[in-house]
Nucleic acid binder design. Sequence first.
RNA 1: UGGCGGAUCGUCUAAUGGUAGGACAGCGGUUUUUGGUGCCGUCAGUCUAGGUUCGAAUCCUAGUCCGCCAGCCA
Length: 564
Amino acid sequence: MNEPIEEAKAEAPTDFIREAVKQDLAEGRFQHVHTRFPPEPNAYLHIGHAKAVWIDYGIALDFGGKFNLRFDDTNPLKEEQEFVDAIIEDVKWLGADWEDRLLFASDYFDQMYTWAQDLIRKGKAYVCDLTPDQMREQRGTLTKPGQNSPYRDRSVDENLDLLERMKDGEFADGEKTLRAKIDMASPNINLRDPVMYRIRHAEHHRQGDKWCIYPSYDWAHGLEDSIEGVTHSLCTLEYEIHRPLYDWFLDELGIYHPRQIEFARLNLSYTVMSKRKFIELVAGGYVSGYDDPRMPTIAGLRRRGYTAEAIKEFCRRIGVAKADNIIEAAQLEDCIREGLNKSAQRVMAVLDPVKVVLTNYPEGQVEELDAVNNPEDAAAGTRKVPFARELYIEREDFMEDPPPKFFRLAPGREVRLRYGYFIKCEEVVKDGSGKIVELRCTYDPATKGGDAPDGRKVKATLHWVSAAHSIPAEVRLYDHLFNKVNPDKVEEGQTYIDNLNPDSLKVVEARIEPFAKDAKPGDRFQFERLGYFCVDKDSAPSRLSFNRTATLRDAWANVQKAQK
RNA sequence: UGGCGGAUCGUCUAAUGGUAGGACAGCGGUUUUUGGUGCCGUCAGUCUAGGUUCGAAUCCUAGUCCGCCAGCCA
C-alpha cells in the first residue's frame, strides 16, 4: 500500500496559491489554514464556481485546515432563499464539507455597524448627501482625478448622528451614503471614497426589515473574513484592484487581517459563464431553465449526467493560474468519459432505426443472447438480450454505396451483430421517395455469439435491438449551446445571443433493449457505440426519457471530417 | 492616452538561473465482438528586440498584444 503515497506525492497539485500558503505558514504569517467559499445567493452556481470551491476547499484539505460556506448576502434587492437552498445543495453535491460552518454575512451586520462608527470616530468615514449622478460626476475618470465631496468634512458627531438616523430609517433610498474617506485623486478608482453603506428599505431574506442600510461588498467582505478567522481569502482576478481597499479597511480598524489572493476565473469554450446571461437565456426561452442540460450550471451538468467526481477531476486538471483562459469543452468531456467508461452499464439502443429482416431466420423464433454488462468491470456480470427475425439497426450503419473507409453494412457485405450473429445484406427495400425502409439480410447460424467457426472475419460490429422486444424512448441529443468558441466575441451590432447554436438540442425517438425498462431518473448507461446517457427527471416508467451526457470518441467521425 | 494584472505546444498547465515536462485535442500504430477502452509512438511552445550571465521561459531595459477598473452590484 505504499504505492498510493508515491502517487499522491507525484500528483499533489501545486500552484502559485498553494506555494504562497506554504510560505505564509513557513514564515509564521499564519499558524493554520482557513478558507471560505463566499457565494452571493442571487443565482445558480456554475462550473466556474466549482473551480473556486475546489480551490478553496481543496487547499483547506491539503493543509489540514478549515473551510467555511458563507453566503455574502449584503444586497436584499437581489438575493433570495431559493438560491441559498440551491447553492447549499450544489456545494454539498460537489463534495465540499463545511462541517458546522454554514455562515451568513448578514449575521455580522451589528458588528459591521459598530466598526463603521469606529471609522467615523477616526475621521476615516463620512455621511455623504450626493445623489448617484453627482457622485459619478465627482468621481472623475480613468485619467482625471475626482473632487472631494462637499460633505467630506462633516464633524464626527454629525456623521455619527446621521449614520444613526440612516439606520433608523429617517431617509429615503439613495438619499445618503456612508463613505470611506480615502483619496479622491487616487489612480485606483476604487479608492476614491467608496460607499460603505447605502440605504435600502427592503426585506432581507434572513434579517427581515431589521435593517434599512446595507454594507457594500468592499466594506463588508474583509470584515466577514476577519470575523471568521479566515487566513486566505481566495477570489477571482477582477478583485485584484480591490485588494488595496480590502487591506485599508482592515488596517484602519486594526483587526485581524486575512490575506487575499486572486486567480483567473474559468471560461469554457462554446458557452458563457455569467449570471446575467443565464438569466437572459432562461427568460428568453433559449433554454428550459437553470438546470437545462446544455447550461454550464452545476444543476445543468448534474441533469446532463455529469458526476461530481468528474467535475472534481476536471478542476484538478485545469489547474490554477493568473492568465486568462478558455478551456476546451473536450477537456471536460474527457473527464466524464473516463469515469463513466469504468462504471456505466452497457446497453444497446438504436437512435435512428432502420428495419432489418433476416430472411432465413425462423418466423416466431426468439433467442436470449448473453451480453456483457461492462467490459471494464467483470463483476457487473451479464444479461440476456432477445434476438428475433426482425431487428432495428442504426440507419447510419448502412450505406448503399460505401466510401473506401466505411467498414459497416453494405449490399453484399457481412458484418457482426454484437453478441448475435454475422449477417449479410442481400436486398435493399425503398419507398416511393427512395428512402430505405428495410434491409433484407441472411444470418449465419454457425456464428451465434459472434464468432465464425471457420475463422472468417468481419470489419464491423453493429449494435441492434429486436423490433418486437425493444421499447421506445425519447432521447435528447445535446450539442454546444453556442457555435463560437467565445460567444462573447461578436460582430458590430450583435450579441452573444446571435451566436446560439440552433442545433444544440435534437430530440429523437429511439428503441432500447428491454433491459433498460426499469431505469430510474439519474441512472447512467453507455449506449454501445454511441455514448453515455442518463435518465432524465422527466422520465416515467411509461415513457422513458434520456439525456446524452457525452458521445463516445468517434474515429469514424474524424475520418468523415477529413474526407470533406 | 491613469492604475492594476497577464503573456510557455491548437487548448490548459509545469519548470523558482542549469536537459522546456505533463494533460486534453490531433496524427500514426497495436489490441479489440463498441471505429469505444487499454497500450505504444508522434506532431507541436517560451510575445518581440536588446542586455546581464559560462548558462535566461526565469533577472534587467524598451516595446507589442490581451484582460480588469469610472454601480449606492458582487
